[in-house]
């Protein structure tokens, strides 16, 4: 059984987001690019599964411009075996549907039992590609997964839902699992791992190879805006703590009407 892990490169979560002058996109100047944090959990789970003898090979699959190679190399350095990079200007601005279609195309002829990925990418926060891909491939999905048990060709996944509850979902392979925090602790790439990663196979695919492009989009981003600045309020630092707390509680009731 082989595992495919979807990997996306995103701005680091500590990034300040600024917009371009015409509000058509965010300004990518000076952004530090990293492997999406939820995808790290997915990579780690795939590696652990292989190390437990339940998978033979871990392939990472990414889509995006040239720089996305770094995210794929990070996953290879963690221990993945090989990589597929869908890179084509025709996919610039592809929406979730067009990306899912491209990934489905990239997986044609690839043998897999499990697809692992993050539950959401922390840039566009759409959280849609995994489910769309599962539908296009006609396979089972479990999202927001915090625990996985594999027995033969049966996968049991714990899905986090509201209020700390978990749905235990069972399906036969092939199955797509979208990881959340808590699934595992991703390893760091070791120095030998990083050296080895440079020589691991990374196959490029074009939009034509995967049969999708931004022409497949079903949505369009019409413009960007920034949130209104939140003004600092009243800070209570002088006097007895008990009096200050009492004042704030009173204001919460009378001024803010929040109690």
């Amino acid at each position: 059984m082989n595992i495919v892990v979807l990997c996306k490169q995103v701005p680091d979560t500590e990034s300040k987001i600024k917009l371009l002058g015409d509000n058509s996109n965010y300004d990518q100047e000076g952004i530090k690019w990293v492997l999406n944090v939820y995808d790290e959990y997915a990579v780690e789970e795939a590696l652990k599964t292989r190390e437990a003898g339940k998978a033979a090979k871990v392939t990472v699959l990414g889509l995006g411009p040239k720089r996305c190679e770094e995210a794929l190399r990070t996953a290879l350095a963690m221990g993945a075996d090989d990589a597929i990079h869908v890179e084509d200007p025709a996919l610039d601005g592809a929406d979730a549907f067009a990306v899912a279609k491209a990934l489905a195309g990239a997986l044609k002829g690839v043998d897999y039992g499990v697809i692992l990925c993050g539950k959401v990418a922390v840039d566009d926060d759409m959280g849609a590609v995994p489910q769309m891909l599962a539908e296009l491939l006609g396979i089972a999905q479990v999202t927001v997964v915090s625990k996985v048990e594999i027995e033969g060709d049966t996968v049991k996944a714990y899905r986090d839902v509201e209020g700390g509850a978990k749905e235990i979902v069972q399906a036969k392979m092939p199955v797509l699992l979208a990881a959340t925090k808590g699934l595992n602790e991703p390893r760091y790439a070791s120095l030998p791992g990083i050296m080895k990663a440079k020589r691991k196979p990374l196959v490029k695919k074009t939009a034509a190879d995967v049969g999708s492009s931004a022409a497949e989009n079903k949505t369009k981003v019409a413009g960007w805006s920034l949130p209104a600045a939140r003004l600092a309020g009243k800070v209570f630092k002088e006097g007895e703590l008990a009096d200050r707390v009492a004042q704030v509680v009173k204001l919460l009731r009378e001024e803010a009407k929040a109690l």
Binding site: F97, A100, D125, G127, Q131, M132, K218, T219
Partner: peptide, 23 residues
Amino acid sequence: ATAQGKDLAPRLAAKLGVGLASD
């Protein structure tokens, strides 16, 4: 945009071949 809706809506959109805006 709940645990259920977030899981379901993208699958539904792909099944119909239409677009989704989440959350």
